[in-house]
Design a binder for these strands. Structure first.
Lengths: 336, 336
DNA sequence: TTGTATGCGTTATCAG
DNA sequence: CTGATAACGCATACAA
């Protein structure tokens, strides 16, 4: 537990001024080779470390970025943070993490907190982007990049998944396999992402002249159990379908289990596809089909965009969409 | 994008000194009611926020804690961070997150970085705790709490799961159900946690006079595929078993799938149990049995212990073990 | 090539 | 009750 030493003590030991020590440490100016050597050896032996707080105060920047997430319970957000943290590290930035638990008041508080902490920029992942959010962000003197929500309308920089297109393309895959009757298990009503996915699916079906009003549908909360229940309700409704699409893979897994429990064979009787592809998709014996996209990449791109905004010293609109890939596995089949 | 205002501008507007403003803002001294009102109104209208950097510099503490994790790819670490972040927030501390990707050099670098950032304490989650880690920590002038590793031997504060006991108890559950022949799918050879679990299982079996040398075993990397392969190797070895225990639920899921693919019925022919219980356990139609423990709690306890160390201003040894619960579900059955 | 002096925005001490 | 003023530790413009 040795005591911290500061720049003036180093200077004293070396018989020079603090300015010279600073120049040596930061390589920020000409220093005679011999005095440089001397100072370096003293830095070495004393284990001198500059006080970053003082430096940041003088330089008026923290090299800190703040991140507010709504949810920290699943693999997706973990990977996102991983991506963010890797990119920030490359650029010698640090990450201040906070979790809002999806609560607006808490989000608001965290924005203030991060502002107080003088972060240079903020990454914001929320379940639902509102006018109130926009107002907060517009007042901020630092750039904000939104993750997981499309804020093009609000002209706030963002990185999102291609909810609409991936859902449309996934549905089109099933159409190509000859399916004509569908069931849909969606997400919460108020979720922009869930609604975009549903729109993608429905537009694909409309494009194939399918009456979307006759499609049995249910909504859920993304969890396995919820998918099971949603599927059960659809089965009980008595409507026919040869393919089920679920808004994420957890609910698709629940749906598969429910179908099997009700005597359906997959994929012989019903094909199942989730608009997501996490570790769950490979958990069951019968591999689930899904749409894969990388959360790590989401974090990477978000961090990169934020750093760009910080370096440009002015916030500008830019939207980045993460690529995806439809993976058809055992859970779907060609209609005869 | 309004410019930041500082304490002296507030003081000027109010016609008082900065000392008085500081007293009002921090409620740290007597101020006449009328001037207090005046200053408060000016603070309100200017939106004045103190510069935390300057404050921290003056106070010599950051209210920041650093966290180094080896891995950010799964639900477990996400929940851990959630727990940490909740507790820190209650105490007005902030979280500086870094990810080492399990690399020692990187871990070392992050310790230095966090030290540089003047964090008040560090939470450290690593795959494997070594002498080198202890040396680094002993030199640090701030407290460190280790997560997920038992560092009692090194007398470093830690929060861990009860690897040995949970494994022993889980195995004893199977013994009570009448099982006498086992197979074991373990983790990486060098993992302390995996070894503790294996020891727990083996000690339970020894206690029931089972020859543990005859138990077919394999090792893997915790992933589903790895459990599948491990199970396949054991099946091919031709040895008999009525119960399989896997070091985590991912590998147990892989093992279940493999068994079914080889014509075994679960639980009629083989019972399967994982020493873990995440979302995966509920993913398959036939619910996996496992041992449940809360990562959120791990984070909670870790953060709480670290804060205790920080407040006591001296590091002391304390070890906290997270409780667990064995959940027997459809994947195990009573032997006839 | 080096040193001096000032600013960064607070908190805290000590007079008044 | 209030105001000067000295830390806090560093960067940097300007002088020498």
């Amino acid at each position: 537990m040795k005591k911290d030493i500061n720049i003036s003590e180093v200077a004293k030991k070396a018989g020079v001024s603090i300015a010279t020590v600073s120049r040596v440490f930061n390589n920020s100016g000409p220093v005679k080779e011999s005095t440089r050597k001397l100072i370096e050896s003293i830095i070495e032996e004393t284990g001198y470390l500059p006080n970053i707080l003082a430096r940041e105060l003088a330089e008026k920047r923290t090299n800190l970025i703040g991140m507010i997430v709504h949810n920290l319970t699943g693999e997706g957000m973990a990977r996102t943070i991983q991506g963010v943290s890797d990119i920030l590290e490359e650029h010698a930035f640090n990450l201040l993490m906070t979790c809002s638990n999806g609560n607006f008041e808490s989000e608001k508080k965290h924005f203030e907190l991060l502002r107080l902490k003088r972060v240079d920029g903020i990454l914001f992942a929320t379940r639902n982007f509102t006018k109130e959010h926009k107002e907060i962000i517009d007042k901020l003197p630092i750039p904000v990049v939104v993750l997981l929500q499309d804020t093009e309308k609000e002209q706030i920089p963002c990185v999102t998944f291609a909810n609409y297109s991936m859902a449309k393309e996934a549905a089109e895959n099933l159409l190509k396999l000859g399916h004509r009757s569908f069931a849909y298990i969606g997400g919460p009503e108020h979720s922009a992402n869930a609604n975009e996915r549903k729109a993608g699916v429905m537009d694909a079906l409309k494009g194939a002249d399918i009456d979307i009003n006759s499609i049995p549908a249910s909504t859920g909360n993304y969890h396995i159990e919820s998918g099971y229940e949603g599927m059960e309700a659809i089965i009980k409704s008595g409507k026919k379908f040869s393919a089920v699409i679920a808004v994420n893979d957890g609910m698709a897994i629940g749906a598969m289990n429910c179908l099997m429990d009700h005597g359906f064979s997959i994929p012989e009787d019903v094909s199942v596809l989730g608009l997501d592809d996490t570790v769950l998709a490979k958990a069951s014996r019968l591999k689930l089909s899904g749409v894969h996209y990388s959360y790590t990449k989401l974090g990477d791109e978000g961090a990169a965009l934020l750093l760009k905004q910080i370096q440009s010293e002015s916030s500008f609109f830019e939207k980045k969409v993460i690529p995806y890939k439809v993976n058809l596995r055992q859970s779907v089949r060609l209609m005869n």
